[in-house]
């Protein structure tokens, strides 16, 4: 399904099955929709600065206005959750080869073998991506249904002693998944490039 371990020496790109490629591309679309519509929601009342706060340029938003942003954000959240669940399920089934393990951190520190180090770094990267995406889902759910998931909201009251209300902590945590996932996505693309070059990238796209 993935072609990292045995890249053919020359010629043909070994494609993953069509469904994995389609699924992978679909993930990207869903993520961009969630991020851009989230930024539209942000603009209704910026997390930093409230009504006087600086808004995100319209270029990066989706929906046109608050209700439109919410249409997309909550319209796609089910797809987003299903995608994430499927990824986690798929990777857990093949966890010995795909998911990061403590051993990867050791490899990263100690191994003198660059390809091995890159593979370890890559596994750590996409494992972190899944964690960040799951965190985004949890914090989003807590703000979508705070009355039903009050116990989730309560998990974010740790800074209340310092004067930071759990709601603000939740908003910042949810927003923080955007820069976090952007960084990880950058690393994911860069590392795929170095592990398998255009061949690997193409094997996952076209």
């Amino acid at each position: 399904m993935f072609t990292t371990s045995a890249a053919p020496p020359t010629g043909a790109v070994r494609h993953g099955p069509l469904w994995t490629r389609a699924f992978h591309a679909f993930n990207l679309v869903v993520l961009v929709v969630m991020g851009a519509s989230g930024l539209q929601i942000y603009n209704a009342n910026p997390v930093f600065g409230g009504r006087g706060g600086i808004t995100v340029p319209e270029l990066f938003t989706l929906g046109g206005w608050l209700a439109g942003g919410r249409d997309w954000h909550f319209g796609f959240m089910g797809l987003y959750a299903a995608n994430l669940g499927l990824w986690i399920g798929l990777l857990l089934r093949r966890r010995h080869r795909r998911l990061a393990a403590v051993g990867d951190v050791g490899t990263l520190r100690a191994s003198g073998n660059p390809p091995k180090r890159r593979l370890a770094a890559h596994r750590i990267t996409y494992t972190l991506m899944l964690i960040v995406l799951a965190f985004s889902l949890i914090t989003g759910l807590a703000m979508y249904k705070p009355a039903q998931f009050w116990w989730l909201v309560a998990l974010f009251s740790f800074a209340e002693g310092a004067g930071h209300d759990s709601w603000q902590v939740l908003r910042i945590s949810h927003l923080a998944t955007i820069p976090a996932i952007a960084l990880l996505l950058g690393a994911h693309v860069a590392l795929s490039w170095r592990v398998g070059g255009l061949r690997l990238l193409r094997s996952m796209f076209v």
Partner: peptide, 20 residues
């Protein structure tokens, strides 16, 4: 999609109606 989301803004209502 990222840069020209505006083109899709007209679809917001349809997305809402399909999923709400």
């Amino acid at each position: 999609l990222l840069l020209g989301g505006c083109a899709l803004n007209g679809l917001s209502e349809a997305v809402g109606e399909a999923t709400q």
